[in-house]
Simulated scan of single mutants.
Amino acid sequence: MTKLSFSIKVKHALIDMNMKPSDLARRTGYSAMYIHNLLNGKRRWNEESMEKVCNVLGLEIQIISKSRSG
């Protein structure tokens, strides 16, 4: 299983949904600059921002034990 960073997965989801980061910003209530900074690694994701982005993009975060992931 290939590991992807959260930002990369979000970027892929944006492409799949034909959305721009500014669209995501509007739908999450964040500024476009904040979303761009998250996606570019200039800001760190937190639980609230991850939840809002997942809700908009229809994504789900799963926590899997290391013993089961490999």
Rank of each mutant, 00 (worst) to 15 (best):
I15A: 13
L59W: 12
S7D: 14
P21C: 09
V53I: 12
N55G: 07
I15L: 10
L24E: 03
I8A: 15
L14F: 06
L39S: 11
E48I: 04
Y30S: 11
I35F: 10
V53E: 05
I63Q: 12
S31F: 02
P21R: 02
D23G: 03
K20N: 11
I35M: 08
Y34V: 00
N40P: 09
K66D: 13
K52C: 01
N18H: 12
W45V: 04
D16P: 00
L38R: 00
R43W: 08
R43F: 11
N18A: 15
Y30C: 06
L24S: 04
K9P: 00
K20A: 10
W45Q: 10
G41N: 12
I15P: 01
L4V: 09
N40A: 10
K9C: 05
N18I: 00
K20G: 04
F6C: 13
L38C: 06
R43N: 13
R43G: 02
I61L: 14
S67F: 02
I63K: 15
I64C: 05
L14E: 02
N18F: 03
G29N: 04
G41V: 01
I64K: 14
I35K: 00
Q62T: 13
I15G: 04
I8F: 14
G41M: 07
M33V: 05
Y30M: 05
V56I: 15
L59I: 03
S5L: 14
M19R: 01
S7G: 15
L4M: 15
S31G: 13
